[in-house]
């Protein structure tokens, strides 16, 4: 005799009920947890921006962000101004750090003028210009923040990724990689050069700061190329504004 569970009608009913239960469960959970998750993401952005300007709780080797309890207060203290550049227009906006770069890039593709958020920080009397970046790695998105001084020399960077290979490309958010960027130049006179991430530059300790190159991580060529492209493309958009600072 055919088993009850082999019947077509049973199969269809089972599938329907299962999908409804699982769908409802996940939808409920996602909606219920969304405010908390969004808040976590907002604080993470603040931590990342502060990290790029050297405000963190790093120990000798590892990346330690300002704790989530203090980050909002420190963000208000050190980030003195947030501006949005849109074409020739420059406006102040205290929520510029929440601008979604992905949406802006999509807007720009459709011919609209994209908004470029820029954060100006101040630490020990020195000004930091912090630029957010977004690009593509090997598997998924990579992003980061780069802070420049008024001579357009890199003060610090922060990189992160969504799904690069653990042990290889995923290491772009580690100290041994990010620390190499401090002091690098991005312009040669008035010409914008960016920073190229590549192997075999005979400078593994990264002592030469004016070669526009940083030593790559072995086994993560495509992630490194993605970062190079991201730095070149995103910083270039800010150049007209940043070069006025020099004059």
């Amino acid at each position: 005799m055919e088993k009850r569970t082999d019947k077509n009608s049973y199969t269809i009913i089972f599938a329907t009920v299962m999908v409804i239960i699982v769908g409802a469960l996940l939808a409920f959970l996602a909606t219920y947890l969304k405010p908390r998750i969004d808040e976590n993401k907002r604080l993470e952005k603040q931590q990342n921006i502060l990290y790029a300007m050297g405000i963190n709780d790093n120990d000798e080797k590892s990346v330690v962000f300002i704790s989530t309890n203090e980050v909002a207060e420190k963000f208000d203290k050190y980030i003195t101004k947030q501006i949005v550049i849109q074409g020739d227009k420059v406006t102040e906006d205290n929520e510029a750090y929440l601008i979604d770069l992905k949406k802006e890039t999509a807007l720009a593709k459709n011919g609209a003028e994209r908004r470029l958020p820029l954060f100006i920080g101040e630490k020990d009397g020195e000004k930091y210009y912090i630029i957010p970046m977004l690009g593509k790695g090997l598997w998924d998105a990579v992003w980061g923040y780069i802070s420049l001084d008024k001579n357009l020399v890199v003060k610090g960077v922060f990189f992160d990724h969504k799904g690069e290979t653990p042990g290889l490309g995923a290491n772009i958010n580690q100290r041994f990689f990010m620390d190499d960027f401090a002091g690098e130049h991005i312009t040669d006179g008035n010409t914008f050069k960016g920073i190229t991430i590549a192997k075999g530059n005979a400078d593994p300790k990264n002592e030469r700061k004016e070669d526009f190159r940083v030593d790559a991580i072995a086994g993560s060529t495509i992630t490194g190329d993605g970062l190079t492209a991201m730095i070149k493309k995103d910083l270039k958009m800010y150049m007209p504004y940043l070069q006025i600072l020099n004059k």
């Binding site: 569970t5 082999d6 049973y10 199969t11 089972f14 599938a15 999908v19 699982v22 996940l26 996602a30």
Partner: peptide
């Protein structure tokens, strides 16, 4: 579990568990 769609059911169970943990 209907035997005809058991693999899909298994997949749904794994995916649901993983998403719940992730969220």
């Amino acid at each position: 579990i209907p035997s005809k769609i058991r693999i899909i059911v298994q997949l749904i169970v794994v995916a649901t568990l993983v998403i719940i943990v992730d969220l």
